[in-house]
Computed example of a mutant assay.
Amino acid sequence: MNIILLGLPGAGKGTQAKIIIEHHHIPHISTGEILRQAAEAQTKLGLLAKGYMSKGELVPDEITIGIATNRLRDADCQNGFLLDGFPRNVVQAQALNGFMIANSKVIDHVIYVEVREELLLERLTGRRTCAGCGATYHVVYQPPRIRNQCDQCSGKLKQRDDDREATVRERLRINKHLTVQLLDYYKPEGSLRVIDGSKGIKEVTEDLIGLFRI
């Protein structure tokens, strides 16, 4: 089973990815992880990627594509894989399509975990981190016993700068633009499946597993 998992930040892709790979016994290939691994292994492409990542810049498509397709050639991907974070845009999707055709493979499912923007905003801006021990909480889903105080060390809870509303809205805007283009790319191929990610984790999982029976 070859699967692409799409969704905006806060949609719960990471949680569902773990369930999918356990269900199908396939590797979870995350863009961030494979870029870091390639950099640590000091491969030619990895060193190029490291140069961009160390400056906080986006890694160019040709480097990301090279690292991702190299990973897909590994033995553990021969019976399937779950792609998370790749492709990120249409250029990468087209390159992936070319790789799959060249290797006589197909993408079985492109799954989009859809969640309305205001709920994503609530999920992403509600995170709080202890300034003392680093423990994390959420004001709605995992609140501390005492407001703004860590349960473990009584330290003060703070909101990280990248969790503030203005920053989160900008992240969502950029990611939504890219995701809409990817959805338009995959719709004609017939492999796109949309699930409601606003439900509880168990319900979303049941919907996901149901897709694989279609």
Rank of each mutant, 00 (worst) to 15 (best):
E170N: 10
I21E: 09
R73D: 09
R171Y: 13
S54R: 12
E118T: 13
R127F: 11
N103V: 07
G155F: 00
T64V: 15
H109M: 05
L82Y: 04
V180G: 00
K158I: 15
R160N: 08
E189Q: 15
E57N: 13
I195F: 08
N70R: 06
D207G: 05
V168D: 02
R127P: 03
K202Q: 08
G190D: 11
L183C: 06
I101C: 00
L96V: 01
K156W: 09
M1L: 12
Q159Y: 10
T125Y: 01
I19L: 15
H25C: 08
Y141I: 07
E117K: 15
A95W: 09
R71M: 07
G197H: 13
P27K: 03
R145L: 13
D108P: 03
I146K: 15
E33L: 08
L82M: 04
I63C: 12
R213H: 10
A93N: 07
N70A: 14
E203Y: 04
K156A: 10
K50R: 14
H109V: 04
L192R: 06
G197I: 09
H177I: 10
A102K: 14
Y112S: 13
E40Y: 10
R160K: 13
E122G: 12
V194Y: 11
G46I: 00
T129L: 13
Q92G: 11
M53G: 04
I201C: 03
L211K: 11
G200T: 13
R123G: 02
K199I: 01
D76S: 10
R169K: 15
N70P: 01
V140T: 13
G56V: 04
L47V: 11
V194I: 15
V139F: 07
I67R: 02
G10P: 02
M53D: 11
V140P: 00
G197A: 08
N97A: 12
L172A: 05
A39C: 04
D196Y: 11
K55T: 06
R160F: 05
G200F: 11
H23A: 14
K18V: 09
